[in-house]
Design a protein around this nucleic acid. Structure first.
Ligand SMILES: [Mn+2]
Ligand SMILES: [Mn+2]
Ligand SMILES: [Zn+2]
Ligand SMILES: [Zn+2]
Lengths: 117, 117
DNA sequence: GTTGATATTGACAGTCATTGTCATTAGATC
DNA sequence: GATCTAATGACAATGACTGTCAATATCAAC
């Protein structure tokens, strides 16, 4: 978890494992997978599934929010949208669905990356 | 594409391949993968990446929309949220991001499945 | 301090969706 | 029919993720 705090961007299990190994920590890949899965289940970290299907993790604030992520450098901005949350609830109710959760992520190119080209 | 029209729910490449084989069509798995990837790239079908990372495909209406999907049976409702679209645009602009797209899907349990248990 | 019960670890092998390869086939053009 | 070209499908390879299990750490008695 400390390692995730250090990077501030979304990282996959394998990336985080590499990072820890380069820092000299002797930790196994299995443990990284297990730990991240457990932390995500306990809502201690956020997970999003990238478009290629790989899961990436990040230490985030405790409140419900979504992400605006730079496709190029991974820079992440946490964003909130109360109107969106209400809309999702209403849509689910209108259609009789229960136990509804939603995934909402924004992917784009940040200022730094678009000026760098 | 005709096969996708027949099912009306999101299906993975492998599921669609099975379906075609059971109907007697002699088509290879590679071709199903290739075709679905191409159709998705050409915006002829919608793709979403399930939480386990598997990509599933569906023939949808041409207008921009999102999905309310039953986790149990796959039943899918197309939903629209103009307020959400405006919110996404505003958030992207405020943070200086360009070329922004968004993924927004709702997963829950439909009426039929929740009464069936 | 030693012992033993219990939980955690990590090396390694297995799984499975997806992608790559390539010889074969289908279709068009002459 | 001969020749070229694009599409196909069987099969192998990739890679993220999961399962296994012996080795190790943790810790509470004794
Ligand atoms: Mn977050
Ligand atoms: Mn759709
Ligand atoms: Zn960037
Ligand atoms: Zn259902």
């Amino acid at each position: 978890m400390a390692a995730l705090d250090e990077v501030d961007e979304f990282r996959s299990s394998q990336e985080l494992h590499d990072y820890l190994r380069h820092k000299g920590e002797n930790v196994g890949l299995s443990t990284v997978y297990r730990t991240l899965t457990a932390l995500a289940a306990a809502d201690e970290v956020d997970v999003i599934v990238r478009e290629d299907g790989e899961s990436i993790y990040r230490r985030c604030s405790g409140t419900h929010h979504h992400h605006l992520v730079c496709r190029s450098c991974g820079r992440t901005v946490e964003v909130e949208g109360p109107a969106v949350e209400r809309w999702a609830d209403a849509v689910a109710r209108e259609n009789g669905f229960t136990e509804v959760n939603h995934t909402l992520e924004l992917f784009g190119v940040c200022t730094a990356c678009s000026s760098a080209g």
